[in-house]
Design a protein around this nucleic acid. Structure first.
Lengths: 342, 342
DNA sequence: CGCATCCCTCAAAGCGCTTTGGCAAAGGAA
DNA sequence: TTCCTTTGCCAAAGCGCTTTGAGGGATGCG
């Protein structure tokens, strides 16, 4: 059933039927109700592509996930993030388009997305420090919101982020406050902006506590479980091993814990661990009132919701000044951190 | 730049330009090349929506993720699966549309997807045993492929799955072969088909080994880390605790290991663990030649690729008989399983 | 030279919707 | 009564593409 058929059924013009369904004032309430009933009865829904072509709006948001050809990891936070964003989209009748793009094709991919017109806006994932996509998207005039920030980019842009530096400063400060002098950093890839900020916060806290940074105790890579395990094992075998670990993700922290326990040490007594916790649905950190890992917690699903909301508002008002928003985090104390052994 | 403008530039009709770019034979090689060059120079790409409207093909695949309102977990395999599927789509010029749909709205959502015409085909995720979506999609005539199977559904349908029953049979057999008599099953939600099959395989292996099933040692829930931890702790405190665990996912197995170690026992010596391993990119089970966990391994990303490929072939040939495919699995032996303690 | 054939190109009709620009009928004011 | 506003509806023109049906020009054949 299409618009033409429906209007013939009703003995009305396509114009009137379309206006009735889209809430335009030029049609009487009586007619509108009659049209509504008929649409329901025949299960009429306007064809998305035809409507998009006519209105110029695609009613879809693009999520472009860079797929690096060497390090081909899929970010584990991804599922929860898009769940949050998707909630907002569907409330407003938007669809979500997902594209996994080899990083070397990214620029032309964004260009084509604009030209081919299949999305109204874009979410930029995993920005690097001087991410070129921001300049590109500004130039293209395609609404977008960055999940995270790009420290070296001076152009204005919209973003949603968690205060990564403060979070790691607070988390590291917590460990230092417990008397730890040798604190290790197990970080994500530091060309990515979030990891860079976390390192900054970590170093800041060390300085505030009057501690020296030690290059042997700071590592950076994909945040896998085995990365946490391997590096922790290595560090614990050092002549002067760390007594505490600040870790970038719960998954990595699981590896850190495994290495500690395998070394015959007790987590929270011999060695302390604090981690960033994205509050993933399939990997809760204990329960709400009894967390297992100490660290900072911030919901990535909530970040997805906020990115979605801000992007939609930018689409409906493209000339507005760039907007940004901080997602709150919270220090939680679990059983994995305790006073430094004497 | 649209088709009209491009054709004016070239002094040709829209017809000829369109045909030249789409490889129709009615246009001379010389003209075709000239058109190609111009398209490149002006960076012309046909508008997706207009093209879709004209051809009737959306050039997009829908992935519908049921979001249960109570148990709101996002499946951790999701990222890797869509990465595999997305690879195939982009090779063939298809886009991927992601929809997170509250389970009670699902039926009407599929209907609307068909009517509104925004996808050419659908991937059905997480089928239950008598999943109603299969009958619905058959009725709608929308091409689809199920990731997994629906045991109680007798209608023909296309699917891609791993041999879950055999996998768990082999895995459990491995544990029984090491002399374990008390083997626990930490399973996924058993209304979902894959978990049901795994239980069947588990029970089969017990029977073959002459062992009794014990309801106290078989649990089923969302495959989170804490689920594995809590249930393992409970079971280890039983008067007659298990000496081996068959686990449904690596994440859950991490929780199982944690509980074992926290009880002061050694994994692989006091208690053995074998797990299903989806080969997730962010959670590798050790390395290729040195796995940590024993168990069965099957790549969910490869499953995504195969689902994508089969779906596209069904779209291009909708009258073909339903196709199905098994993704292979492999028993791997790590350090978490060893002879039963005497 | 006339006619049929093939090759290349074109104009125009759709795809299903929204939206512009009327136009009659009804109602109100003078 | 006449004139002017609303009110409620419609015909038709797009949106940017593909595809049908047709035609002009060059070539080959008798």
């Amino acid at each position: 059933m299409n618009l033409k058929q429906l209007s013939e059924q009703l003995g009305l013009s396509q114009t009137t039927v379309s206006r009735a369904l889209n809430g335009y004032p030029e049609v009487s309430e009586k007619t509108r109700e009659r049209v509504r009933q008929a649409a329901l009865a025949f299960n009429y829904k306007p064809n998305t592509r035809a409507r998009s072509l006519a209105t110029g709006r695609a009613m879809a948001i693009g999520h472009v996930i860079p797929v690096s050809t060497q390090q081909e990891m899929v970010n584990p936070i991804f599922g929860d993030f898009v769940t949050g964003a998707g909630e907002i989209y569907s409330q407003h009748g938007y669809d979500m388009m997902l594209s996994l793009v080899p990083d070397r094709d990214e620029e032309s991919f964004y260009r084509d997305l604009k030209i081919k017109g299949n999305v109204d806006g874009i979410v930029v994932h995993s920005p690097s420090m001087d991410d070129p996509r921001i300049a590109l998207l500004n130039e293209l005039g395609l609404p977008y919101v960055v999940h995270g920030r790009a420290s070296s980019v001076t152009l204005p842009y919209s973003w949603v982020d968690v205060a990564n530096a403060s979070a790691f400063e607070e988390m590291t400060g917590h460990l230092a406050g417990l008397g730890h002098r040798r604190i290790a950093l197990i970080n994500g890839i530091e060309t990515l902006d979030f990891a860079h900020r976390r390192r900054r916060g970590f170093l800041h806290a060390l300085r505030d506590a009057g501690l020296e940074a030690d290059d042997d105790l700071m590592v950076s890579s994909d945040m896998t479980e085995s990365f946490g395990f391997n590096e922790t094992r290595r560090m614990l075998a050092l002549p002067n091993p760390p007594t505490a670990f600040a870790v970038a993700s719960l998954i990595t922290a699981l590896g850190v814990r495994r290495a500690i326990e395998q070394a015959g040490l007790t987590v929270g007594r011999d060695v302390s661990v604090a981690t960033f916790d994205d509050d993933l649905s399939y990997l809760r950190n204990g329960t709400e009132d009894a967390p297992v890992f100490s660290g900072v917690r911030s919901s990535v699903r909530e970040a997805g919701r906020r990115v979605g909301a801000i992007l939609l508002s930018r689409i409906s008002n493209p000339t507005a000044l760039p907007a940004s928003e901080m997602i709150p985090f919270r220090l939680v104390t679990g059983t994995t951190s305790g006073p430094a052994p004497s």
